[in-house]
């Protein structure tokens, strides 16, 4: 009896249950916002600590932040190109940091110890709303980037090598956000489920390698998301001759 209740407490898996917040007519997934606020708050505290006293000779946190900045710049520059990467670096960097912090925060912090009336806390990126929001922002960004850089000539891209490409390129505009959002959502949710089921079945030791795998997947997914977003923007601003 005791063992059974212990299991229930530690490893009850709730899929598709949400903590609903009702504001007027609209309904929100409260657990997504709660975790995202905690994680983004931690991120902002970390960043303000690191940039509080900037020196020409970097030390400690500033060093780490500069490394991160350099990493994001390289990512944006290689994908978008030398000409306009500066405009898009903050967006790409925010996507990377948001996804990374969400994934790792969801995997590393034992949210399950905090009891909610309904649903449970977890990675914000394991909610389809978050990933679709991110993917749609990417879509809007590459359209905006293309139109603002090339004007109506942006649409040459749709018939670029030959006009035969037109239907495929139009289709791509739908598959890009779809694949972006579902890739991230599926990976993070699957990781949470696998770890949850393993913890439920074998609470000791066995889940640990899977958790490490989860951390790896989380980092890779953040990198993939940011790289693809940058690649799409780069594709939209690229000049073909």
């Amino acid at each position: 009896m005791f063992f059974n209740s212990l299991l229930t407490n530690f490893a009850a898996l709730e899929v598709g249950q949400h903590l609903y917040w009702q504001i007027g007519n609209i309904r929100l997934h409260g657990q997504v916002f709660l975790t995202s606020w905690i994680l983004l708050g931690a991120l902002l505290v970390f960043i303000s600590l690191g940039t509080k006293k900037m020196e020409n000779d970097p030390k400690g946190l500033q060093n780490l932040l500069e490394f991160l900045w350099d990493y994001i710049r390289d990512l944006a520059r290689t994908q978008i190109g030398e000409k306009v990467y500066r405009d898009w670096m903050p967006f790409i960097g925010t996507l990377f940091l948001f996804v990374f912090v969400s994934n790792w925060g969801g995997a590393l912090i034992p949210w399950r110890l905090i009891k909610l009336p309904s649903g449970e806390l977890g990675a914000p990126t394991a909610d389809i709303n978050t990933t679709i929001a991110l993917a749609l922002l990417v879509s809007l960004s590459y359209f905006y980037a293309g139109l603002s850089n090339k004007g109506w000539r942006y649409f040459e891209y749709y018939v670029h090598p030959t006009p035969i490409m037109l239907p495929f390129k139009i289709l791509e505009d739908f598959t890009k956000p779809l694949s972006l959002s579902f890739r991230l959502f599926g990976n993070i949710l699957a990781d949470e489920l696998v770890v949850g089921v393993l913890v439920f079945l074998v609470p000791l030791i066995l889940p640990i390698p899977v958790m490490f795998l989860g951390l790896f997947t989380s980092a890779i997914q953040a990198l993939i998301f940011a790289t693809l977003a940058a690649y799409y923007i780069g594709e939209a601003v690229e000049e073909h001759h």
Binding site: I26, V32, S36, F98, N129, T130, I132, A133, L134, L136
Partner: peptide, 13 residues
């Protein structure tokens, strides 16, 4: 379950 979380999350990002 897609609801108002989506646009609000987009605004937040």
């Amino acid at each position: 379950d897609i609801n108002a979380t989506l646009p609000l999350m987009a605004i937040q990002v």
